[in-house]
C-alpha cells in the first residue's frame, strides 16, 4: 500500500529538510547533503527541485529570498516538527533493534 505523503520521510527528504535548518539555496543543498553523509546519500537536481516545490506546498519550508534566479529556503515550524517526529521514529526503531537484537549481537 502506498504511504501517505511525508508520513514517513525518505533519506533524501530527511537530509534536505535537515540542511534547511539554516537558510540555504537549492544548489547548496546538494553539496551539503553529500558532505553530511560522506557521499552516502546524493540528491539529484531533478529530485531536489521537485521536493523543494512539494515542501513549500506542504508548508514544511518557506522561501526566504530570491536573488536573480537563486532561491533560498528555510525550515518552518511544521517542517521542524515533522523532522523531529521522523527522528523520534528512527530512534524508536534503533531502540527496538537494540532491545531485541542488540543483546544477541553482544553475545
Amino acid at each position: 500500500m502506498p504511504r501517505a505523503k511525508f508520513q514517513t520521510l525518505t533519506e533524501q527528504m530527511f537530509y534536505i529538510l535537515m540542511c534547511l535548518k539554516n537558510e540555504c539555496c537549492g544548489t547548496d543543498i546538494m553539496e551539503k547533503v553529500r558532505k553530511m553523509t560522506n557521499g552516502r546519500i546524493v540528491v539529484g537536481p531533478g529530485t531536489l527541485y521537485n521536493l523543494l516545490e512539494q515542501f513549500v506546498e506542504e508548508d514544511l519550508i518557506c522561501e526566504t529570498k530570491i536573488e536573480g534566479r537563486k532561491r533560498s529556503y528555510i525550515l518552518t515550524d511544521k517542517g521542524k516538527k515533522l523532522l523531529e517526529t521522523e527522528y523520534n521514529r528512527i530512534c524508536t526503531q534503533a531502540e527496538d533493534f537494540r532491545r531485541f537484537l542488540g543483546k544477541e549481537n553482544d553475545k
Binding site: Q12, V42, V43, G44, T47
Partner: peptide
C-alpha cells in the same frame, strides 16, 4: 555525474 533523478517515486510523479 550525479543522476538528475535520484528518487524513483518523484520521477514517476513528474
Amino acid at each position: 555525474c550525479i543522476p538528475i533523478e535520484t528518487d524513483a517515486q518523484i520521477q514517476l510523479e513528474c
